[in-house]
Amino acid sequence: MRVLTNAGRFTPPGQGEGRRYTEELRVPDLSVGTYCVPVGGKDTQLPHTEDEVYVVASGRAKLTAASGTVDVGPGSVVFVPAGEEHRFTDIAEDLTVLVFFGPAEYTRRQT
């Protein structure tokens, strides 16, 4: 067992960064991280080769994907399949999201 002590805690991005991602756990079939985007920050992520589940710990925003747009806030859980373009927009409150990748992020080959 391993307790992920800092998972889900807001950590502001560094100077000149619009967002921050901290990987909390990595095993072959799963990785878990905390994604933080402050009000005024910009989510510039590109589609991933792994499936993702987002669990919003705090904050409010929209999650815009190729398949649609949804409002997210504390407790929201959203699945984004591998390869689907997506990003958080309209950040209304500092956003903290737990991100679960299956398999672990960057383990599938790019095609």
Rank of each mutant, 00 (worst) to 15 (best):
108 R>E: 14
52 E>A: 10
7 A>Q: 00
68 G>K: 01
31 S>I: 09
41 G>I: 04
93 E>Q: 13
29 D>W: 14
99 V>K: 00
74 P>N: 10
71 D>K: 11
48 H>E: 08
11 T>E: 10
43 D>K: 05
98 L>F: 15
36 C>W: 04
57 A>W: 06
32 V>Q: 03
103 P>F: 14
17 E>V: 11
77 V>S: 06
72 V>H: 05
81 P>G: 06
107 T>P: 11
31 S>T: 12
97 V>I: 13
103 P>N: 15
72 V>K: 06
12 P>K: 03
33 G>H: 04
86 H>E: 02
45 Q>T: 15
27 V>W: 10
5 T>E: 14
56 V>S: 02
80 V>R: 00
66 A>S: 13
72 V>G: 03
34 T>L: 07
19 R>G: 00
46 L>P: 02
54 Y>T: 02
104 A>E: 11
13 P>A: 06
5 T>F: 12
1 M>C: 11
65 A>D: 00
19 R>A: 05
110 Q>D: 13
23 E>T: 08
97 V>P: 06
81 P>R: 03
98 L>E: 08
75 G>R: 03
2 R>K: 14
89 T>Q: 00
34 T>E: 08
87 R>L: 04
61 A>D: 01
22 T>P: 09
76 S>L: 01
41 G>W: 01
103 P>V: 14
93 E>K: 11
88 F>G: 10
82 A>W: 02
17 E>Q: 15
99 V>E: 03
88 F>H: 15
92 A>W: 07
50 E>L: 07
81 P>C: 04
44 T>P: 02
19 R>D: 02
43 D>H: 04
54 Y>M: 06
18 G>T: 00
36 C>Y: 01
110 Q>G: 10
44 T>H: 03
75 G>P: 07
69 T>P: 02
75 G>H: 04
49 T>V: 10
